[in-house]
Structure formats: structure tokens, C-alpha cells
Write a protein that binds this DNA or RNA. Structure first.
Length: 215
DNA sequence: CGTTCGATGCACT
DNA sequence: GTGCATCGAACGT
């Protein structure tokens, strides 16, 4: 299991906005007992420090946000709305709480597995609207992404230099990126800390909120 | 096209 | 008890 080109600790031990920008175009990989799912990162958001009101570290250290204060290059996964796991990557030095939320991927490997996970029933309701999802919808949005990748609270605190959950550098062609305010938050909207690939079908949010036909 | 709203678990006040 | 870094169904225009 050594033929991956994993990002090293130094990559994550940097200013969060730089890490966020540089994560675009990299590959997020989840390897669960040999079942591999992966995708190109096309949309992320930065959450930076106790002075960022939207950051979970805003109230200071708590039991939940402890991973954000820890070593860079680890996962911070938490449950939102009782339903969705949110996948973050811890950045910056120890004691400096910050992370990058992974919002959307363009699926690369394991799309069949992703589709199966997305169509699982959740408390009677069928996820994914019951329709056959196109690839670019499988990991579109942070809740959909974790469901498709099989990322759960069990992945909280995972070391991204390990073999289960990590980011690979494949030096794909450059994407055109853009910055915007973060989505779905009530405070901290003044910061343009969301980065995304322009005009990409797998990106969530305003430009693609309503159904688009194809790509 | 748009807006509203329920589901669902848990950290935090 | 309150409020989410969401999603998609249901309904209104």
C-alpha cells in the first residue's frame, strides 16, 4: 500500500487559506478494508481560529473541537443536523485551531460503491432522491460526500498520513478556481473563504443550486 | 423558477 | 432547551 503519493505533514502545516487553495485538484482517498473510493477535490471551505465566528473553535477549546487544536494533517469529522458527517482537514500548527471543510469531489474510483451508499435508506427515506445519480452528483455537497465515501464519526482524528483516509497529489491539469463566502452559515459570511472550481458540475451552491441537465 | 420545512443526534448554554 | 458548516421533498408563483 505504498504506491500512493500522499501529501506530507508540511502541506497541512501552513496558513489555512493556502492549504484550502492547494487542496483543489488533489485526490481525497478513502480505503476501507480494500474498498477504495476517491475523487478530485473541487470545493472546500476554510475555518480559521477562535476569531472566526463560524469556526467550531470560536467558543474556545471544547471536547468536540479538540482535533482542530491538534496536529495538522488529521481529520476532524463531526455530525451536523443529526444526519450528516462533515469531513474536515486540520491545518496550521498545534494549538492554532483551523481546518478545511471538504465540500465536493469529482469521483474518480469507486463510483459504483458510492452510488450504492447514496441509495441506502435512512430511516425509511431513500437517500439520493431514489433516482440514478450521475457521477458528478455522488459527492456534491459535504453531506453527500461523506455518505458516498463512507466517512463517519469513526474517522474523526484519523491521521491523513495513514492508509485509510488521505490526500494524494497527482498533479492533474490546473483548474480555474474562484473564491466566495462560505455556504450555510449565519455568521462569518464576510469572509470569502470558500474555494471552488469554476463551472464544475460537482460543485454545490449558487451557480448550480437548481438542477442542471448535463455536462 | 422560488421558498419552506422536517428529519435527526448531539454539543453546548 | 437551542441550534446547527445539510438535504431533498413538498409546495407556492
Amino acid at each position: 500500500m505504498g504506491n500512493w503519493h500522499k501529501l506530507t505533514r508540511d502541506f497541512y502545516d501552513r496558513p489555512t487559506l493556502d492549504v484550502a487553495r492547494d487542496l483543489i485538484g488533489k485526490i481525497l482517498v478513502h480505503n476501507r478494508r480494500g474498498v477504495v473510493t476517491s475523487g478530485v477535490i473541487v470545493e472546500v471551505e476554510a475555518y480559521i481560529g477562535e476569531s472566526d465566528p463560524a469556526c467550531h473553535a470560536a467558543p474556545g477549546p471544547t471536547a468536540r473541537n479538540a482535533p482542530m487544536y491538534g496536529r495538522p494533517g488529521h481529520a476532524y469529522v463531526y455530525l451536523n443536523y443529526g444526519i450528516h458527517s462533515m469531513m474536515n482537514i486540520v491545518t496550521e500548527a498545534i494549538g492554532q485551531p483551523a481546518a478545511v471543510l471538504i465540500r465536493s469531489l469529482d469521483p474518480l474510483e469507486g463510483s459504483a460503491v458510492m452510488r450504492r451508499r447514496r441509495s441506502r435508506k435512512v430511516k425509511g427515506r431513500r437517500a439520493g432522491g431514489g433516482r440514478i445519480l450521475p457521477d458528478h452528483d455522488l459527492c456534491r455537497g459535504p453531506g453527500n460526500l461523506t455518505m458516498a465515501m463512507g466517512i463517519t464519526l469513526a474517522d474523526n482524528c484519523a491521521d491523513l498520513l495513514g492508509d485509510c483516509l488521505f490526500v494524494e497529489d497527482r498533479r492533474l491539469p490546473r483548474h480555474e478556481i474562484s473564491w466566495s463566502p462560505r455556504l450555510g452559515i449565519r455568521v462569518g459570511t464576510e469572509h470569502p473563504w470558500r474555494v471552488f472550481v469554476v463551472e464544475h458540475a460537482a460543485v454545490s451552491g449558487s451557480t448550480g443550486r437548481s438542477r442542471r441537465a448535463t455536462r
